[in-house]
């Protein structure tokens, strides 16, 4: 790592002002940022430590307002929280499946949602890839085993978060504070495919910070599940993951949200699958149609066609799981 200055942020407004300056990066858990600094993917002149911000470390819950997570809540705190385990199990499952106990003690929910891709070309300083400002995606005709199968354009990296698909399936919203804004948006709106003029996976601009994540209470009888496939049983990013939350009116599926991880530059909402499921009774045929819709338009690369099969198997399994559970 190159040298840098270090400032403990005293409050959100000051943090925003500091982060608006050039060559400045925010640090919270640090588990993603320090990797980038050590690899010299970036060498900021100043780090602003967000861990000193008061009021962003709490998990609170009320039956009316739902769940509120301060952006500095760690993944370990989410994984172990009794109310999250009981009322928002897919969130606890997703947190528990991420990284390792040590990294979950360090990493924050805000940082997890904003983490950078794990693409080996992106993470290697020797490759000036498109996402880092170059003009070529080296994965496109290179080593692309872990890359995107859906919606990729100039960059084939996938978003690595486990918590983002789960929180989108739970319809979470964020509070974002920045130099010229203070407002709420849905978590789904945070993510964007990188474009020519904005080569990043979120819409956050300089100095814009997530302060809170809010999760509404799932409807009565709503059920969810998070499934993740990995190359080993722990300490791996998802090859493919699926978060799904459904509720039922009698035997019919009243609402369904199905979100895939590990397949695209953003957590991938399988809206066509949701449309097929909503209003219907479960049948094998229905599940098959929803599965095909989830991967419609997939464009696998040389080494990642297996992800299409994995995604289909996982989507089928979550549908069967959720439709066959009875309270």
């Amino acid at each position: 790592m190159r040298t840098f200055e270090h400032v403990n942020a005293p409050d959100v407004q000051t943090a925003v002002a500091l982060l608006g300056e050039a060559s400045t990066e925010a640090i919270a858990g640090g588990t993603d940022l320090l990797g980038e600094l050590k690899a010299r993917l970036r060498s900021p002149q100043r780090l602003v430590n967000l861990k000193t911000l008061a009021g962003l470390q709490e998990i609170s819950y009320s039956p009316k307002a739902g769940l509120r997570l301060g952006a500095l809540v760690t993944l370990a705190e989410i994984e172990r929280h009794p109310i999250i385990q009981e009322r928002f199990p897919i969130l606890a499952q997703a947190a528990a499946s991420a990284a390792t106990p040590q990294l979950r003690n360090m990493g924050t929910i805000g940082g997890n949602l904003c983490q950078k891709p794990r693409c080996w070309y992106y993470r290697n300083k020797l490759f000036e890839c498109w996402l880092k400002g170059g003009d070529k995606c080296f994965a496109e005709d290179g080593e692309n085993k872990y890359h995107a199968i859906l919606g990729a354009d100039r960059c084939h990296a996938v978003h690595p978060s486990d918590l983002a698909p789960a929180l989108i399936a739970l319809d979470a919203t964020l509070r974002v504070v920045g130099p010229d804004l203070d407002g709420e948006l849905s978590l789904e709106e945070l993510y964007t495919k990188p474009t020519e003029s904005r080569r990043q996976m979120t819409i956050l601009g300089p100095g814009e910070l997530i302060t809170d994540i809010r999760v509404p209470i799932p409807k009565n009888g709503s059920r969810g599940v998070y499934l993740k496939t990995m190359e080993r049983q722990s300490w791996s990013f998802a090859l493919v993951s699926v978060a799904a939350q459904m509720n039922f009116a009698g035997e019919r599926i009243a609402d369904a949200r199905v979100v895939l991880g590990g397949v695209a530059a953003i957590p991938w909402r399988a809206r066509d699958s949701e449309r097929i499921l909503i209003g219907q009774r479960f049948s094998e045929g229905l599940a098959e149609r929803a599965v095909e819709a989830a991967v419609a338009g997939a464009q696998p690369l040389r080494d990642n066609e297996y992800k299409v099969s994995l995604a289909k198997a996982l989507v089928k399994r979550v549908i069967i799981d959720l439709c066959s559970t009875t309270d």
Partner: peptide, 20 residues
């Protein structure tokens, strides 16, 4: 760099480093 330092000073935060 100079303007940055001035602005940060205005914000009344303690900047440490890059030295020891």
């Amino acid at each position: 760099m100079a303007t940055k330092a001035v602005r940060a000073k205005k914000l009344k935060v303690a900047i440490r480093g890059p030295g020891k």
